[in-house]
Design a protein around this nucleic acid. Structure first.
Length: 117
DNA sequence: GGGGTGACGCGTC
DNA sequence: CGACGCGCCACCC
């Protein structure tokens, strides 16, 4: 169909923003976590961190998008986690072997390092 | 089209 | 430490 090329690019970009975010979150390995900013950077713009948060908030498919593996830069889980609060998120992560120090993920050891592979 | 909001990040005080 | 403030960008009135 013939819609304006620019218009289409815009639409594509917007969809891709979310698609990229979800695709990246899907790739976070078992037993590891990533930060919002990290995902934003991988999605192409590290300033998208807030959008990443929003994207996970409206997570369309929690079954395949492990949003609980996403924490903030300090390793803190979200208090507004969808399934029964942040405590639930902590449980899920600990079940994967992720260790916490003072209520925060030990980022040094569990943050996903996408460069090493 | 304008304005408020947020599962963030970073600088300041 | 904690409390603000600001920038960012997509979303929702």
């Amino acid at each position: 169909m013939q819609i304006g090329r620019e218009e289409m690019r815009e639409t594509e970009r917007e969809q891709n923003t979310f698609e990229r975010i979800y695709e990246i979150v899907r790739q976070i390995p078992y037993g590891q976590v990533a930060t919002y900013g990290q995902i934003a950077a991988l999605a192409g713009n590290k300033r998208l961190s807030r959008v990443v948060g929003y994207a996970l908030h409206v997570n369309p498919d929690p079954a395949t998008i492990p949003c609980y593996r996403v924490v903030n830069r300090l390793g803190e889980v979200s208090r507004a986690f969808a399934f029964g609060g942040g405590n639930r998120q902590v449980e899920l992560l600990e079940a994967e072997g992720v260790q916490f120090i003072d209520g925060r993920v030990d980022m040094k050891h569990y943050q996903w390092n996408h460069f090493v592979f």
